[in-house]
Structures are given as structure tokens and as C-alpha cells.
Design a protein around this nucleic acid. Structure first.
Ligand SMILES: [Mn+2]
Ligand SMILES: [Mn+2]
Ligand SMILES: [Mn+2]
Ligand SMILES: [Mn+2]
Lengths: 223, 223
DNA sequence: CGGTAGTGTTCGCTCATTCTAACATAAGAA
DNA sequence: TTCTTATGTTAGAATGAGCGAACACTACCG
């Protein structure tokens, strides 16, 4: 427990990464963060210690990190910014889907609350960003949906493409190239074994996509 | 002469400040920069030396600093960003005039070229920002206008309010409160001596404003 | 239980930014 | 011209952010 004001690009990115990796209550390993953030392990340990003493994470030597409530609040705020900015870029400034993540990754650390709420209002307080991720509300609430990876849908089952879960512009582009747009109606026809490709009908057209990509195409299933 | 990539908020703000203070060829004193940037003198000297060795300014011990061509290019680019952002905030996001400077001061360091050109296009490639400052074009050209401070206009003379030359939100608010909006048609009626107030007709209504504020209200004069 | 492979931390450095205190120079007054 | 004051620079230190090399734990295998 400390006071330190502590805020910066590095800190915000760190907290966001912890939030994203920390499913449930699991502690996040420093080396995992090292990979995700593209920083060396010593840098991550160092940041973990600084944020621990700032009260934003609970860090325990050799057993990783979890967000405190204060840390979680900041993470959600940054994620809200990120996703609203992405949507704004697509809707108001003509960005392509694959262009927005990089830009938002920087802008999220520079815009004021005033700015965020102005674009939120202009966009009509949206709840989903252009990749299909939920946008946290100003008070930190997230829309919950139970989504299944396309890679796990049995042949015969289907639904709507609800999320393209990647921030890699190349993969995103690939998904669209292969004919899997957000909101598309999809029905699985078949899947090869050994992590083979999935064949599916998307909006009535037959499409094929590899296993690892299909893992990142999330479906809101219908009976 | 060096290579260093060197780019950052501090550097960009420094170059912008030098640009603004450097009328003609005059060297800018480190202490002047110290005031404007709200940094101590040693910090400024230090930055001057680092930018000298990066080839962005010409710094001479005890005689201040001038931009090199490379430095000027960066300064103009940052100013373009700043002013386009200000205009965008007013036109598209409903900001008040006095709110935009602070926001732009941060955003100018975070937005990409892609972003700047997107908003420039959306705004119709404007040449004047919401304070009346000229917006440098992408290739660094500035609209030139010969403007006179209201404080120097003889009684009987007049013109159009072309620029409110302050970044202080309070002063800006004050100018508008006193009835001196951009584009207003103004005619000087009288002025008290000893740096006294100026009386003027603005859009037909009689107004009064103090000397120091009148110095910052720039007029495009008519015969 | 003991040993090793893999994980995670410390140590010691570097750079950018900023500050305070101490020192140096330049410019104008006498 | 010499002295004083105002202006400007160095010295020394701190903080945040990162890195590579060396060291320390854990966990799992036999
Ligand atoms: Mn994103
Ligand atoms: Mn970011
Ligand atoms: Mn401004
Ligand atoms: Mn700035």
C-alpha cells in the first residue's frame, strides 16, 4: 500500500497486458508478460516491483503478478479508451480494420477523459469495438457473451461471427480475405483432423480456414 | 552533424518553442525557453546540447539556439498537427475554444501521419486554426497575413479580428466574454493613454478591453 | 531424495529527463 | 576600464525505462 501517482505508457501497457492474461484469478508469469510486451524479463520484474509498491499489482517473487482493484480500474479505463478509439477511427476517419490497433495503442495513452467521452457520445455509447471486443463502460462494466472459437464448433453447428480475436494486422487481413467478416452467418460443414482446416458456409458461400486462425474467429452460436 | 533518430514529447515541444520564439534569425536565449517550457535553465541547456549534437538546432554557448533546417521541419510538422487537432476538436467533437490547446499539446505527440492527414482531409485541408493561427501545409508552407494588434490600431481604423494570439484558456475566455470573437468586424473608437483600455465597436456593439489583452487580438486591417 | 532444465531475479549499466547548488561569463553602470 | 548583476553553464543526483550477464529458485524426472 502506497500513494505514488505513477502513470505512463509503460505502466498502462503493463496493466493492460496483465488484465488480458489474467483469466479468473491466475497469477501472470513475468516471462509471459515479457513475451507479450516485447520487453526483457528483467524489465518486467522491475516494473512488477515498482507497480507492487504503487499498489497497482500484487507481485510475489517467483510466482508472478495479479492486478489489485486499483490496477484493474486503470486497466479497464485504458481498454475502454483503446476500443473506443479503434471504433472511432473506423467509423469517423475511414480506417481499415487492420490499421486501427497500432494507432490506438499509442493514442490510448494520450487522450483525455474529455476526449474519450466526446467520441463515446458521438458514436452513441457503443458496447462492441470493430474487432468484436466488448468496450468497458465508463464505470467498468463489460458486456458478457459466451462465444466459441470456430475451431471448436462441430460440423452442422453455426452462428454469427462475433469477434476476430487478434491484434495482428496480417492475420486480420487474412481472415477477411478468406471470407470471415464480423457479423457473418456461419455454419460449419466439416473439419479435417490433426488441427486441420475448417470448412464452413459464410453467408451462403463456402469457405476454408486453417486451424490456428479458426481459433481466433469467435462465434455467437445458435442452436 | 550527427544521425541520431531522437524524437519525443520533450524534443518536439522544445523545437516548437524555439520556432515560435525565433522571429527572423534571432537566436533564442536558453532562459527564455526555460520560462516558456516551464523547465529549469539547466534542463534547457542540456536539451540544447543534445539537440545540437542531433543536428536539430545550432547551439552556441552563452548565445542561445536557432533551428537547423532539420529542426525547422520537425517543428512545422508538430505545429501542423497541433493546429489541425485543435480545429478538429472544435469542429467535430464540440470542444470550446479554450479547451483545445491543452488537449492538442498532448495529442500532437501521439498521432500518426495517417491520422493527421485523415483529419486534414475531413476538415477540407484548412489553412487557419480555431485561434486564427495559420496551419502549415504538409510540405511546410504557411499562409502569410499582415496583422496588427488591436492595441496599435489608431482610433478611426478598423478591420476583422483574425487571430486571438494566446494559448491561455483564461485569457481566451476573457476575450470572448468581452465580445471580441474571431471574424468580428471591429472599429477602434478611442484608447486611453498609459497603456489604457481600448474602446471599439465590434459588430456594431461597443466594447472595451485592456491593453495587454488588446495586444493579443490581431486585426486584418481595412483601409 | 538429488540433480538438472527451465524460470525468474539481481546486478550493474545506459540513456533521457529533470532538478538544485555551485560556478562562470557577459554586459552595463560607475 | 573595472565591478556588479544578470544571465547561462557545469556538477552531481534522482527517477523511469530498458538491457545483458550472472545468479537463484522451482519443479519435475529418475
Ligand atoms: Mn486493439
Ligand atoms: Mn498502448
Ligand atoms: Mn494551441
Ligand atoms: Mn506538446
Amino acid at each position: 500500500m502506497s500513494d505514488h501517482p505513477l502513470q505512463s505508457k509503460s505502466v498502462e501497457n503493463f496493466l493492460k497486458a496483465v488484465y488480458a492474461l489474467q483469466e479468473g484469478d491466475d497469477r501472470v508469469a513475468t516471462n509471459t508478460l515479457s513475451d507479450v510486451l516485447n520487453k526483457t524479463a528483467p524489465s518486467v520484474t522491475d516494473m512488477a516491483q515498482r507497480l507492487e509498491s504503487a499498489g497497482l499489482v500484487d507481485y510475489q517473487k517467483y510466482r508472478g503478478v495479479v492486478l489489485t482493484e486499483a490496477g484493474r480500474e486503470i486497466a479497464l479505463k485504458v481498454i475502454r479508451r483503446h476500443r473506443l478509439i479503434e471504433l472511432y477511427l473506423v467509423r469517423e476517419l475511414g480506417y481499415q480494420l487492420h490499421e486501427v490497433h497500432g494507432e490506438a495503442e499509442d493514442l490510448e495513452h494520450a487522450v483525455s477523459d474529455r476526449f474519450v467521452e466526446a467520441i463515446a457520445k458521438k458514436l452513441g455509447d457503443p458496447v462492441i469495438d470493430p474487432h468484436g471486443d466488448p468496450i468497458p463502460s465508463a464505470d467498468g462494466t463489460l458486456l458478457y457473451r459466451h462465444l466459441m472459437p470456430l475451431s471448436e464448433l462441430e460440423p452442422g453447428r453455426g452462428g454469427v461471427i462475433a469477434q476476430l480475436k487478434t491484434s495482428d494486422p496480417e492475420m486480420l487481413q487474412h481472415m477477411l480475405d478468406r471470407g470471415f467478416p464480423l457479423q457473418g452467418r456461419v455454419e460449419v460443414i466439416a473439419r479435417d483432423p490433426f488441427q486441420g482446416p475448417t470448412m464452413a458456409l459464410v453467408n451462403g458461400i463456402q469457405r476454408v480456414v486453417g486451424y490456428h486462425v479458426a481459433e481466433c474467429i469467435l462465434i455467437e452460436t445458435s442452436p
